[in-house]
Protein backbone atom coordinates (compact mmCIF):
# COMPACT_ATOMS: atom_id res chain seq x y z
CA UNK A 1 0.00 0.00 0.00
CA UNK A 2 2.65 2.36 1.11
CA UNK A 3 4.90 1.61 -1.84
CA UNK A 4 1.95 1.96 -4.17
CA UNK A 5 1.37 5.50 -2.92
CA UNK A 6 5.06 6.26 -3.28
CA UNK A 7 4.89 4.89 -6.79
CA UNK A 8 2.12 7.34 -7.65
CA UNK A 9 4.32 10.21 -6.50
CA UNK A 10 7.28 8.83 -8.40
CA UNK A 11 5.38 8.28 -11.63
CA UNK A 12 3.63 11.63 -11.47
CA UNK A 13 6.99 13.38 -10.95
CA UNK A 14 8.65 11.39 -13.72
CA UNK A 15 6.00 12.21 -16.29
CA UNK A 16 5.74 15.81 -15.19
CA UNK A 17 9.48 16.12 -15.79
CA UNK A 18 9.23 14.33 -19.18
CA UNK A 19 6.36 16.60 -20.15
CA UNK A 20 8.37 19.66 -19.19
CA UNK A 21 11.50 18.75 -21.14
CA UNK A 22 9.39 17.95 -24.17
CA UNK A 23 8.24 21.56 -24.31
CA UNK A 24 11.27 23.31 -25.81
CA UNK A 25 9.58 26.69 -25.39
CA UNK A 26 9.95 26.10 -21.66
CA UNK A 27 13.15 24.10 -21.54
CA UNK A 28 15.43 26.19 -23.70
CA UNK A 29 14.84 29.65 -22.19
CA UNK A 30 15.06 28.29 -18.64
CA UNK A 31 18.37 26.62 -19.37
CA UNK A 32 19.90 29.11 -21.74
CA UNK A 33 19.05 32.54 -20.30
CA UNK A 34 20.81 32.24 -16.94
CA UNK A 35 23.86 30.70 -18.61
CA UNK A 36 23.89 33.28 -21.37
CA UNK A 37 23.54 36.21 -18.97
CA UNK A 38 26.25 34.78 -16.79
CA UNK A 39 28.60 34.39 -19.74
CA UNK A 40 27.99 38.01 -20.76
CA UNK A 41 27.99 39.78 -17.43
CA UNK A 42 29.90 37.39 -15.24
CA UNK A 43 32.63 36.12 -17.53
CA UNK A 44 33.09 38.28 -20.62
CA UNK A 45 32.72 41.68 -18.98
CA UNK A 46 34.76 40.60 -16.01
CA UNK A 47 37.90 42.55 -16.77
CA UNK A 48 39.62 40.95 -13.78
CA UNK A 49 39.09 44.10 -11.74
CA UNK A 50 37.40 42.23 -8.94
CA UNK A 51 38.68 38.71 -8.31
CA UNK A 52 35.44 37.50 -6.72
CA UNK A 53 33.27 38.89 -9.49
CA UNK A 54 32.85 35.58 -11.33
CA UNK A 55 31.99 33.71 -8.13
CA UNK A 56 29.58 36.41 -6.98
CA UNK A 57 27.61 36.51 -10.22
CA UNK A 58 27.72 32.72 -10.55
CA UNK A 59 25.75 32.60 -7.28
CA UNK A 60 23.28 35.30 -8.22
CA UNK A 61 22.65 33.99 -11.76
CA UNK A 62 22.17 30.53 -10.25
CA UNK A 63 19.48 32.03 -8.03
CA UNK A 64 18.02 33.68 -11.11
CA UNK A 65 18.19 30.31 -12.86
CA UNK A 66 16.39 28.25 -10.24
CA UNK A 67 13.60 30.80 -9.83
CA UNK A 68 12.56 30.50 -13.50
CA UNK A 69 11.40 26.86 -13.59
CA UNK A 70 9.74 27.09 -10.17
CA UNK A 71 7.84 30.25 -10.98
CA UNK A 72 6.87 29.18 -14.51
CA UNK A 73 6.03 25.54 -13.79
CA UNK A 74 3.65 26.61 -11.05
CA UNK A 75 2.66 30.09 -12.10
CA UNK A 76 1.98 29.43 -15.77
CA UNK A 77 1.58 25.64 -15.83
CA UNK A 78 -0.98 25.46 -13.05
CA UNK A 79 -2.90 28.48 -14.36
CA UNK A 80 -3.29 26.94 -17.79
CA UNK A 81 -4.19 23.48 -16.52
CA UNK A 82 -6.65 25.04 -14.10
CA UNK A 83 -8.37 26.88 -16.97
CA UNK A 84 -8.38 23.76 -19.15
CA UNK A 85 -10.06 21.77 -16.41
CA UNK A 86 -7.08 19.44 -16.06
CA UNK A 87 -6.62 20.41 -12.42
CA UNK A 88 -10.27 19.56 -11.75
CA UNK A 89 -9.76 16.18 -13.38
CA UNK A 90 -6.74 15.53 -11.19
CA UNK A 91 -8.74 16.55 -8.15
CA UNK A 92 -11.47 14.13 -9.10
CA UNK A 93 -9.08 11.23 -9.78
CA UNK A 94 -8.15 8.82 -6.94
CA UNK A 95 -4.60 10.15 -6.99
CA UNK A 96 -3.87 12.40 -3.99
CA UNK A 97 -3.76 15.96 -5.32
CA UNK A 98 -0.55 16.55 -3.37
CA UNK A 99 1.16 14.23 -5.86
CA UNK A 100 0.37 16.71 -8.58
CA UNK A 101 2.03 19.59 -6.72
CA UNK A 102 4.87 17.38 -5.54
CA UNK A 103 5.57 16.35 -9.11
CA UNK A 104 5.78 19.96 -10.22
CA UNK A 105 8.09 20.86 -7.34
CA UNK A 106 10.41 17.94 -8.15
CA UNK A 107 10.39 18.75 -11.82
CA UNK A 108 11.22 22.38 -11.11
CA UNK A 109 13.98 21.35 -8.72
CA UNK A 110 15.47 19.00 -11.32
CA UNK A 111 15.47 21.77 -13.88
CA UNK A 112 17.04 24.02 -11.29
CA UNK A 113 19.69 21.38 -10.65
CA UNK A 114 20.64 21.23 -14.31
CA UNK A 115 20.88 25.03 -14.45
CA UNK A 116 22.97 25.20 -11.30
CA UNK A 117 25.33 22.50 -12.58
CA UNK A 118 25.67 24.34 -15.86
CA UNK A 119 26.53 27.61 -14.10
CA UNK A 120 28.95 25.93 -11.69
CA UNK A 121 30.71 24.31 -14.63
CA UNK A 122 30.95 27.62 -16.48
CA UNK A 123 32.20 29.42 -13.38
CA UNK A 124 34.77 26.76 -12.59
CA UNK A 125 36.07 26.45 -16.15
CA UNK A 126 36.01 30.03 -17.35
CA UNK A 127 35.62 32.20 -14.26
CA UNK A 128 38.34 30.54 -12.19
CA UNK A 129 35.86 30.05 -9.33
CA UNK A 130 37.40 27.97 -6.54
CA UNK A 131 35.42 26.74 -3.54
CA UNK A 132 35.98 23.93 -1.08
CA UNK A 133 33.87 20.82 -1.71
CA UNK A 134 31.72 21.73 1.28
CA UNK A 135 31.09 25.21 -0.15
CA UNK A 136 30.16 23.82 -3.57
CA UNK A 137 27.81 21.28 -2.01
CA UNK A 138 26.22 23.79 0.37
CA UNK A 139 25.70 26.27 -2.45
CA UNK A 140 24.05 23.59 -4.56
CA UNK A 141 21.77 22.42 -1.74
CA UNK A 142 20.83 25.96 -0.77
CA UNK A 143 19.91 26.71 -4.37
CA UNK A 144 17.84 23.56 -4.90
CA UNK A 145 15.97 23.94 -1.60
CA UNK A 146 15.74 27.62 -2.36
CA UNK A 147 13.44 26.90 -5.29
CA UNK A 148 10.65 26.05 -2.80
CA UNK A 149 9.62 29.63 -1.88
CA UNK A 150 9.33 30.39 -5.59
CA UNK A 151 7.29 27.25 -6.20
CA UNK A 152 4.94 28.49 -3.46
CA UNK A 153 4.83 31.97 -4.98
CA UNK A 154 4.24 30.45 -8.42
CA UNK A 155 1.43 28.28 -7.07
CA UNK A 156 -0.23 31.31 -5.55
CA UNK A 157 -0.05 33.12 -8.89
CA UNK A 158 -1.13 30.08 -10.90
CA UNK A 159 -4.23 29.62 -8.77
CA UNK A 160 -5.03 33.32 -8.73
CA UNK A 161 -4.72 34.43 -12.38
CA UNK A 162 -6.12 33.31 -15.69
CA UNK A 163 -4.04 31.07 -17.94
CA UNK A 164 -3.72 33.63 -20.73
CA UNK A 165 -2.51 36.31 -18.35
CA UNK A 166 -0.24 34.01 -16.34
CA UNK A 167 2.93 34.29 -18.45
CA UNK A 168 2.73 38.08 -18.47
CA UNK A 169 2.09 38.31 -14.72
CA UNK A 170 4.91 35.91 -13.89
CA UNK A 171 7.37 37.82 -16.05
CA UNK A 172 6.22 41.07 -14.52
CA UNK A 173 7.22 39.75 -11.13
CA UNK A 174 10.19 37.59 -12.12
CA UNK A 175 12.31 40.09 -14.04
CA UNK A 176 11.98 43.20 -11.85
CA UNK A 177 12.43 41.08 -8.74
CA UNK A 178 15.59 39.55 -10.21
CA UNK A 179 17.06 42.95 -10.98
CA UNK A 180 16.03 44.62 -7.72
CA UNK A 181 17.30 41.69 -5.65
CA UNK A 182 20.76 42.15 -7.11
CA UNK A 183 20.75 39.00 -9.21
CA UNK A 184 21.94 40.71 -12.39
CA UNK A 185 24.22 43.30 -10.86
CA UNK A 186 25.71 43.12 -7.36
CA UNK A 187 23.27 44.77 -4.98
CA UNK A 188 26.00 47.12 -3.74
CA UNK A 189 25.99 48.74 -7.16
CA UNK A 190 22.37 49.78 -6.76
CA UNK A 191 21.54 53.00 -4.91
CA UNK A 192 21.25 52.67 -1.14
CA UNK A 193 17.48 52.84 -1.17
CA UNK A 194 17.24 49.69 -3.28
CA UNK A 195 19.48 47.83 -0.87
CA UNK A 196 16.75 48.23 1.74
CA UNK A 197 13.87 47.85 -0.70
CA UNK A 198 15.27 44.45 -1.75
CA UNK A 199 14.36 43.03 1.64
CA UNK A 200 10.79 42.49 0.46
CA UNK A 201 11.93 40.01 -2.22
CA UNK A 202 12.53 36.33 -1.47
CA UNK A 203 15.14 36.33 -4.27
CA UNK A 204 17.23 38.83 -2.30
CA UNK A 205 17.24 36.61 0.78
CA UNK A 206 18.11 33.47 -1.15
CA UNK A 207 20.93 35.31 -2.96
CA UNK A 208 22.30 36.55 0.37
CA UNK A 209 22.26 33.02 1.78
CA UNK A 210 24.13 31.61 -1.20
CA UNK A 211 26.57 34.56 -1.13
CA UNK A 212 27.10 34.06 2.60
CA UNK A 213 28.50 30.62 1.83
CA UNK A 214 31.28 32.30 -0.15
CA UNK A 215 31.47 35.17 2.36
CA UNK A 216 30.30 37.78 -0.08
CA UNK A 217 26.92 38.61 1.41
CA UNK A 218 26.08 42.06 2.74
CA UNK A 219 26.95 40.66 6.15
CA UNK A 220 23.58 40.33 7.85
CA UNK A 221 23.21 37.12 9.88
CA UNK A 222 22.25 34.22 7.64
CA UNK A 223 19.45 33.22 10.02
CA UNK A 224 17.67 36.52 9.33
CA UNK A 225 17.50 35.68 5.63
CA UNK A 226 16.53 32.10 6.39
CA UNK A 227 13.66 33.16 8.64
CA UNK A 228 12.51 35.74 6.09
CA UNK A 229 12.39 33.03 3.42
CA UNK A 230 10.51 30.60 5.65
CA UNK A 231 8.03 33.28 6.63
CA UNK A 232 7.47 34.31 3.02
CA UNK A 233 7.03 30.67 1.96
CA UNK A 234 4.45 30.07 4.67
CA UNK A 235 2.62 33.22 3.63
CA UNK A 236 2.58 32.16 -0.03
CA UNK A 237 1.39 28.66 0.88
CA UNK A 238 -1.36 30.03 3.12
CA UNK A 239 -2.57 32.41 0.43
CA UNK A 240 -2.33 29.65 -2.19
CA UNK A 241 -4.45 27.34 -0.04
CA UNK A 242 -7.09 30.02 0.17
CA UNK A 243 -6.98 30.51 -3.59
CA UNK A 244 -7.11 26.71 -4.09
CA UNK A 245 -10.29 26.43 -2.05
CA UNK A 246 -11.85 29.12 -4.19
CA UNK A 247 -10.64 27.72 -7.52
Amino acid sequence: MKSATLRIYYLEAKFEFLKAIRVPAFTLPSLIFPAMFYIFFGLMFNSGSHPQHAAYLMATYAVFGIIGPALFSFGVGVAIEKDQGWLQLKQASPMPISAYFFARAVSAALFGLVIVMLLFTLGALFGDVRFTHAEWLLSLLALILGSLPFAALGLLLGLSVKGQAAAAVVNLIYLPMAFLSGLWLPIQMLPDFFQYFAWIFPAFHLAQIVLAIQEQSLGYPIVVHLLSLVAMTLLFVALAMRAYRRA
Partner: peptide, 23 residues
Protein backbone atom coordinates in the same frame (compact mmCIF):
# COMPACT_ATOMS: atom_id res chain seq x y z
CA UNK B 1 14.18 1.94 -10.98
CA UNK B 2 15.66 1.17 -7.60
CA UNK B 3 19.13 1.94 -8.83
CA UNK B 4 18.10 5.23 -10.33
CA UNK B 5 18.28 7.30 -7.09
CA UNK B 6 21.67 5.78 -6.28
CA UNK B 7 22.93 6.56 -9.73
CA UNK B 8 21.56 10.06 -9.42
CA UNK B 9 23.27 10.71 -6.10
CA UNK B 10 26.53 9.20 -7.35
CA UNK B 11 26.46 11.50 -10.38
CA UNK B 12 25.81 14.51 -8.16
CA UNK B 13 28.61 13.60 -5.76
CA UNK B 14 31.09 13.08 -8.56
CA UNK B 15 30.05 16.43 -10.02
CA UNK B 16 30.77 18.15 -6.70
CA UNK B 17 34.07 16.31 -6.32
CA UNK B 18 35.11 17.32 -9.83
CA UNK B 19 34.59 21.03 -9.12
CA UNK B 20 37.85 22.84 -8.42
CA UNK B 21 38.91 23.75 -4.88
CA UNK B 22 41.26 26.50 -3.68
CA UNK B 23 44.93 25.60 -3.59
Amino acid sequence: NKLLPLFFIAALVSFILLLPTPT
